[in-house]
């Protein structure tokens, strides 16, 4: 059994700010971490490995700058057998399409992968698009938002968490599964494993190593571009209703029901 877990290094907080002058993200002083949902994916993979009767290899995979190696070391410290960093100037500027293509190419290069696990989304971009993209590029089934996962032979059964219901789905391996936070409680690496992971060799692959089409990676392979980023408006006192109780209540009810309607249909 070979499992690849796609992870992303993200800022350790979502509390990032924008420079009001340049409209650029202020990243200084913000530490990095493994995307929390990806930690759940790692845990899910390691649980499969722990319970697997036979050889099971868990490989952490990420695309990013050389510093993203730290995220892979965290994954190794948690218990991954191997880690691969896809790093190449040509990968820069990738949107979710180019990223998923790149990861898929690496997974092909790894070869004979039975299961790809991803967090449902990254906390910086919040897109939830990369996992399904990888599945499409690999031509395998996808099961998104899994809250339970079990393997039996070549069969995967997963419970998906939808808005107000769950769906139990089955497919054959190989497949891509993305997981939600509630699926498990990720283990912490012991300090002994943290120190061991620091000494581990991390494989690095470039665009050439994964035989990537230059037109499909990085900025060149990304159909979307960020035109601008800006700070959302802060919370300020809003409207005030004053006057006859009857009128006020009427207006309030309008507002509340409008919001509530959104909830019940969501």
């Amino acid at each position: 059994m070979k499992i690849v877990v796609c992870i992303k290094q993200v800022p350790a907080t979502t509390n990032v700010r924008i420079d009001p002058e340049t409209n650029a993200l202020i990243r200084e002083g913000v530490e990095s971490q493994v995307n929390p949902f990806d930690e759940n994916a790692l845990e899910a993979a390691l649980q499969v490995k722990d319970g697997y009767d036979g050889e099971c290899q868990v490989i952490a995979l990420t695309m990013g700058p050389p510093q993203a190696e730290a995220a892979l070391r965290d994954a190794v410290a948690m218990g991954c057998d191997d880690a691969i960093l896809l790093t190449d100037g040509a990968f820069r500027g990738a949107d979710t399409l180019a990223t998923s293509y790149t990861l898929a190419q690496a997974i092909r290069r790894i070869g004979d992968v039975d299961l790809v696990l991803c967090g449902k989304q990254a906390i910086d971009g919040d897109t939830a698009q990369v996992g399904p993209g990888v599945a499409e590029h690999l031509g395998v089934p996808q099961i998104t938002f899994a809250i339970e996962l079990s393997l039996e032979g070549r069969k995967i059964t997963a419970k998906r968490m939808l808005e107000d219901s769950f769906e139990v789905v089955e497919c054959r391996m190989p497949a891509v599964v993305t997981v939600v936070k509630q699926i498990n409680d990720p283990r912490r690496a012991s300090m002994k494993n943290v120190l061991k992971a620091r000494k581990r060799e991390i494989t690095r692959w470039t665009a050439e190593d994964i035989d990537a089409d230059p037109d499909r990676i990085g900025f060149q392979g990304s159909p979307t571009v960020v035109w601008k980023v800006f700070a959302p408006e802060g919370r300020k006192g809003g409207r005030k209703l004053e006057g006859e109780v009857g009128d006020v209540v009427h207006a309030l009810a309008d507002e509340i029901l409008e919001i509530r309607k959104g909830l019940s249909t969501a």
Binding site: R17, D126, K228, F230
Partner: peptide
């Protein structure tokens, strides 16, 4: 919104 709503991004294709 991105970063949990802490920033907004406008995107073009």
């Amino acid at each position: 919104p991105a970063f949990g709503g802490n920033i907004m991004a406008s995107i073009l294709c």
